[in-house]
Structure formats: structure tokens, C-alpha cells
């Protein structure tokens, strides 16, 4: 473990940073969109969840790579 563990944790942290920013933007824009057009709320929500999942997927790639690093 040792040093590798720390670097892996750092990598996971950076991945989370990006995902946090991305999902934050998606959520914020979705809320704005719903506020402007409340009738489209359900459609916006579905689109938001999909977009958030795609971002999260990328972040989880990062986490998986970090896990790989942790095992090395």
C-alpha cells in the first residue's frame, strides 16, 4: 500500500472534483430550466439524470483506475 495508496486516493479525489463540478452545473441548469418552464419538469429531470449519470460514469472510471493503483 504505502505511497501508492495515497496517490490513488489523490486520483480519486481529483476525479470526484471534476464530477462534482459537472453534476453541479447539470443540476443548476436543470433547476433553472424547471423554474422557467415548470411544465417540462419531468422531461428535464430525465435528461438531467442521464447527463448526471454520464458525468458520474467518467468520474467512476477515475475511481476504478484509482482502485487499480491502490492494488498495485
Amino acid at each position: 500500500m504505502g505511497i501508492f495508496g495515497s496517490i490513488a486516493a489523490l486520483g480519486a479525489g481529483i476525479a470526484v472534483l471534476g464530477a462534482g463540478l459537472g453534476i453541479g452545473r447539470v443540476g443548476g441548469s436543470a433547476v433553472e430550466g424547471i423554474a422557467r418552464n415548470p411544465e417540462a419538469a419531468s422531461k428535464i429531470q430525465t435528461a438531467m439524470i442521464i447527463a448526471a449519470a454520464l458525468i458520474e460514469g467518467v468520474a467512476l472510471f477515475g475511481v476504478v483506475v484509482a482502485l487499480l493503483g491502490a492494488k498495485a
Binding site: A53, L54, E56, G57, L60, F61, V63, V64
Partner: peptide
Amino acid sequence: FALMVRLFANITA
């Protein structure tokens, strides 16, 4: 592949 990793990583995490 993204589907595979997303589900795996989400649940494991």
C-alpha cells in the same frame, strides 16, 4: 463498457 463500469463502480463504491 461505460454501462459495465458505471454499475460496477456505483454499487461497489
